[in-house]
């Protein structure tokens, strides 16, 4: 009787698998064609004409994680804007730039973008707490949007405080605030596994600034490592 139940369960699983595969074979091409059209529209609207969007992975399977290539004549800001626009198309699950087989991996400029956003505005927290002030919601939306092209990289969120008060409390507070920002980014759709946090308390004040200065209370973002698509040996002549 036990074997029979197990067999029924396995048959159900096999049936589900067959259903999934058949469903993808039947509807996949149409679904991806729709994504393709919307991605192309988003690209053109962002001014990224010339960027090719490939909806096939390196094994040739259809995917909803497109690989971008070309657009070499465009400046970095346009490329980033184009990538961000494509990434926000509903249904698309993250994008990557292909390493065109020459030179280093494409450098994404999310970190610069985020720094530019945070130059004039800061993420605000409630006094002595790690609760993000609701007034910073829109700012966090913008930060998320500019980090999205770097999905696949490790993004470090670091919290800092000024040196008033107990250093241990400051350390915990900066960690808590970095953690709160991380969760806010996850809530906005960034994948959790690429987001790391650290709290440095008041140990790293802004260079040239008095450690007491409240301007030292801040959240910094750094894109530590980007994970470009590894080219296959065929793409890189001379590779072993």
């Amino acid at each position: 009787m036990k074997t029979r139940n197990a067999l029924i369960a396995a048959a159900g699983a096999a049936l589900s698998l067959a259903l999934a595969t058949a469903g993808t074979a039947r509807n996949g091409p149409r679904f991806v064609a729709g994504l393709e059209a919307r991605a192309a529209a988003a690209r053109d609207q962002a001014g990224g004409q010339g960027v090719a969007i490939a909806f096939r992975d390196r094994y040739g399977w259809l995917t909803r994680h497109p690989i971008l290539s070309g657009g070499d004549g465009l400046d970095a800001a346009t490329r980033t804007r184009t990538a961000a626009a494509i990434a926000t198309v509903p249904g698309i699950g993250g994008i990557r730039w292909v390493n065109d087989g020459q030179g280093g991996p494409r450098v994404l400029h999310c970190q610069d973008d985020v720094e530019r956003i945070l130059e004039t505005r800061t993420i605000r927290f409630s006094e002595a707490s790690a609760r993000i002030d609701p007034a910073s919601d829109r700012l966090l939306d913008e930060v998320t949007r500019s980090l999205r092209p770097c999905v696949g990289s490790i993004i470090a969120v670091t919290g800092h405080t000024d040196d008033s008060g107990d250093p241990a409390v400051n350390l915990a507070l900066s960690q808590g605030r970095a953690e709160a920002v991380r969760w806010a980014l996850i809530a906005r759709g960034l994948p959790a596994d690429g987001l790391r946090t650290a709290g440095l308390g008041s140990t790293k004040p802004i260079a040239g600034l008095d450690p007491h200065d409240p301007a030292n209370r801040r959240i910094e973002f750094s894109v530590i490592q980007s994970a470009p698509v590894k080219p296959t040996p065929i793409d890189t002549p001379g590779a072993e």
């Binding site: 369960a9 159900g12 699983a13 589900s16 698998l17 259903l19 999934a20 595969t21 469903g23 993808t24 074979a25 996949g28 679904f31 991806v32 992975d57 094994y59 399977w61 259809l62 995917t63 909803r64 994680h65 699950g93």
Partner: peptide
């Protein structure tokens, strides 16, 4: 991740969860 694999994972996951809940309900005492 190819589309078919995403689909297969999500369908199997749904099946597994449904199966698990069904199993628990079916074998509930009382």
């Amino acid at each position: 991740m190819p589309l078919w694999l995403e689909m297969a994972v999500s369908v199997l996951l749904t099946y597994g969860i449904g199966f698990g809940i069904g199993w628990l309900l079916w074998n509930r005492k009382g």
